[in-house]
């Protein structure tokens, strides 16, 4: 796997509070060009907030996000997507009244795509169906022509990714694309994501399914309570004691032992 050491996205000291809750607290890390970066952490550790902050859906209280050398902190989400940083939504957001392939008409009509096409429209329906097929919609079964509200979750997750791909992105931020999918559905999604990386797209993946995630990613950032616990290769993360405590949970016996030790110390 070839990838540069150049940082494509730099997150610097990003903080965001909702009321008294520090959803993101002084988080810094880099996404390198061409890599797949995993972001893991327990529920409520600020993973989705991080994606919202990078893509402009939530404005940070402090800190900055750079795309290459350009500061993109607090820009409008449409503007950030226009630069080529696109995201999927954890809770799928299809245009449910439209057929699946017409869902891609929106990104295909975006200024970003119109610029590259030099204003020519072309056959957008055909392009849309090609993208859907690439992402795993069976063309023969008329799946691309079905109304989105009738599609099962597996296809809707694919549709989220397809809508990102239609924008010809540089970076995709995937917010739990595997959640709610069966093991076999995930197995068919993994090669799709591997192929995206080979096509040169940089990917950030938030995921709870660690086994599948660790097979895909080059590096992992671990969040807990809005703060960055550590970053490193999957092997480093798995063997790190702090991560095991925060994320994977410690054995109850160990906990009891620790508590006993603490009590002894107090005495």
């Amino acid at each position: 796997m070839s990838m540069g050491e150049e940082a494509l996205i730099r997150v610097q000291n990003l903080s965001k509070s909702f009321g008294g809750v520090k959803a993101t607290n002084d988080v810094s890390f880099e996404i390198k060009r061409g890599e797949i970066l995993g972001v893991i952490g327990p529920n409520g550790s600020g993973k989705t907030t991080l994606v919202n902050l990078i893509t402009g859906f939530v404005k940070p209280d402090a800190g900055n996000v750079y795309f290459g050398n350009k500061k993109i902190t607090g820009l409008d989400p449409a503007k950030i997507a226009d630069l080529g940083i696109v995201r999927t939504f954890q809770i799928v957001r299809p245009y449910h009244s439209l057929p699946a392939y017409k869902n891609l008409i929106v990104p295909l009509n975006s200024p970003r795509i119109k610029r590259t096409k030099g204003g020519k429209s072309g056959d957008r329906d055909a392009v849309a169906i090609d993208i859907l097929e690439e992402i795993g919609f069976e063309r023969d079964a008329f799946v691309p022509y079905k109304i989105a509200s009738t599609l099962p979750l597996g296809y809707l997750k694919r549709l989220e990714l397809a809508r990102c791909l239609a924008l010809k992105p540089e970076v995709i931020l995937c917010d739990e694309v595997f959640s709610g999918l069966s093991a076999s559905e995930i197995m068919s999604m993994v090669p799709v994501i591997e192929r995206l990386q080979m096509e040169g797209i940089t990917i950030l993946m938030i995921e709870h399914r660690l086994r599948e995630l660790f097979r895909l990613v080059n590096r992992v950032v671990v969040l807990t309570f809005g703060e960055k616990l550590m970053e490193g290769t999957p092997e480093e993360v798995v063997s790190n004691q702090k991560v095991r405590e925060a994320y994977l949970g410690v054995e109850t016996e160990e906990l009891e032992e620790e508590e006993e030790e603490e009590e002894e110390e107090e005495c």
Partner: peptide, 12 residues
């Protein structure tokens, strides 16, 4: 259907 998804597609 979903205005946030439209924004995420780079459209104002």
């Amino acid at each position: 259907d979903n205005d946030q998804a439209v924004r995420a597609s780079g459209i104002s």
